[in-house]
């Protein structure tokens, strides 16, 4: 976890004069790429997943003339498999990337200062304190929200979704070997469908909070958010 930083960059090899800079490099290119690819995949997954639960109005004519549900399901499954690959890649990058790449998977749960700072952030959101602190990566409260609402949720969706996909793939497939244990917990897969669907709504809630917090902090706090996930550099104002 990054504490509050004072940011000074020294002269580089080309002897550019040393200047005091107010930016810091946070999000490496693989993390940024993953973020936007994932954003697209999740939108596709939510739309196609919703349509699987509540399909569009019935089509008339010969069955052989259409493949509507087939395409919707293909979109969902294809996006889901890319989502799994992207998630595995992101886990890999947590090992080889910089310290901010690890924030998605870790909360300093046992550190007293962490909870103090999280509480401070909460008071900022509740209009109790006037100024937020400067954080290079996610602030402590955002860190908690990310791990619980995004990382755990993603894992839950991958596991339940993988199990449901395994049923279609068949009993003797690798999918069933990997995800079949889900049906030991929930033997009736209708229940797994329902929980997977609830997970979709939790993801919608996450997106609402995530986008709002990013835009608001970009305007209100003293650091950039939106440009940071595009260029990787976070600027600190004032």
């Amino acid at each position: 976890m990054s504490r509050v930083y004072t940011l000074v960059k020294t002269a580089d090899a080309e002897a550019t004069p040393a200047i005091e800079r107010n930016s810091v490099f946070v999000y490496e290119a693989p993390v940024r790429t993953w973020h936007w690819v994932n954003a697209i995949l999740i939108v596709v997954l939510i739309v196609s997943g919703y349509l699987i639960g509540s399909p569009p109005p019935t089509l008339s004519g010969e069955a052989s003339a259409h493949y509507q549900m087939g395409y919707i399901r293909f979109g969902h499954f294809a996006a889901a498999q890319l989502f799994i690959v992207a998630s595995l890649y992101r886990v890999y990058w947590a090992f080889v990337g910089n310290e901010h790449a690890r924030q998605l998977f870790y909360v300093p749960f046992w550190k007293r200062w962490y909870w103090y700072e999280a509480l401070y952030e909460l008071s900022w959101y509740l209009f109790i304190v006037d100024k937020p602190k400067k954080w290079v990566g996610h602030n402590p409260l955002a860190n908690l929200a990310m791990v619980v609402l995004f990382t755990f949720l993603s894992l839950f969706m991958i596991v339940t979704g993988g199990a449901l996909y395994a049923q279609g793939a068949g009993n003797d497939t690798l999918w069933m070997t990997i995800f079949g244990w889900v049906f030991v917990i929930w033997p009736n897969s209708q229940e797994v469908h329902t929980l997977h669907h609830v997970g979709m709504w939790v993801m919608v809630i996450f997106i609402v909070l995530h986008v709002y917090a990013a835009i608001r902090e970009d305007i209100m706090s003293r650091q950039t958010m939106l440009s940071a996930i595009v260029t990787g550099d976070r600027y600190f104002r004032d």
């Binding site: 329902t194 669907h197 609830v198 979709m200 709504w201 809630i205 609402v208």
Partner: peptide
């Protein structure tokens, strides 16, 4: 069902 519960929760959060 999931849409009623999830949709309501999402509307409250929004």
């Amino acid at each position: 069902n999931a849409d009623v519960v999830g949709g309501t929760a999402a509307a409250i959060v929004a």
